[in-house]
Write a protein that binds this DNA or RNA. Structure first.
Lengths: 136, 136
DNA sequence: TGTAAAATAGTAATGATTCCTATTTTACTC
DNA sequence: GAGTAAAATAGGAATCATTACTATTTTACA
């Protein structure tokens, strides 16, 4: 199946390239709709999947139940804030060492890796947090 | 809310402790039902969530769209086979170094980490794979 | 222009997980 | 051992992200 140009796919990809965070399909949909009011959510999903399958973008599953998408396809880690839910990049030099270490120890073939850190971002650390329910 | 004993929760936890792989809620349900025919799927989900919230077990999100559960709560990596879907443990010494490195570089508070490798396990590497659709 | 393959919009279906409620079980007191 | 309030359960309904379906439109190319 050859891929043909589509204006919608172009707009989706351009939008993703313009963002440093890692939007979900729904966020992409709501933003792209502003200049493309008839685009359907299915089209957004289909094109994000197509782009990810071809390696043009990365699909991230950070454990919040929703897929995030990243136009930066280089190997890097992510940080997920438990406070605000933001997903940000984290460049660690030791990433490649870890991959090498894993390949040394594992008998199968390791193709890629995904590392995600969890905690509170600098912003959320500053704010006072309601912990009234936390000991319930 | 104090936690009271329940036979169902005990059976769910015991089953998880007996497995070296990392079953999904549905797999737990189908197995536990053999000796507890009336248990409901909702009970399995509720107890897995309760145990995970209390730190007795770990919830894994490896990117296949389904949650997996692990009775081993120590920090370790996982490997997900793209062939058979199995999820296995991978102990890497450099894991703690990576966490230290991340804490040094990041301005927020990092609480935990999740690392997952993807590829083909030793078993699936041996088998011939149908790639007829891979260039489509 | 003509045409076949690919893509779209809109909607229905899927499937994992959570929520709801009447009933049962637990833990604790007398 | 009975009485009781909180917690847990079974079973089913609801939710919500994602995928599948289909009639129509767009693309690429002769």
């Amino acid at each position: 199946m050859t891929v043909k140009y589509s204006r919608q796919r172009q707009v989706i990809y351009d939008f993703l390239m313009s963002r440093k965070d890692h939007p979900t399909a729904d966020v992409v949909y709501r933003n792209v709709r502003q200049e493309h009011p008839n685009i359907s959510l299915g089209t957004v999903y289909r094109n994000l999947t197509l782009l990810a399958d071809r390696g043009a973008i990365q699909r991230l599953q950070v454990g919040d139940g929703v897929d995030h998408f990243d136009a930066d396809v280089s190997q890097h880690c992510h940080f997920v804030c438990s406070g605000c839910g933001s997903v940000t990049d984290l460049q660690l030099d030791c990433l490649k060492d870890m991959l090498a270490d894993a390949r040394r120890k594992f008998s199968g073939r390791i193709e890629r890796q995904s590392t995600c850190f969890y905690g509170l971002c600098g912003n959320c650390l500053g704010k006072s947090v309601d912990i009234s329910e936390e000991n319930a």
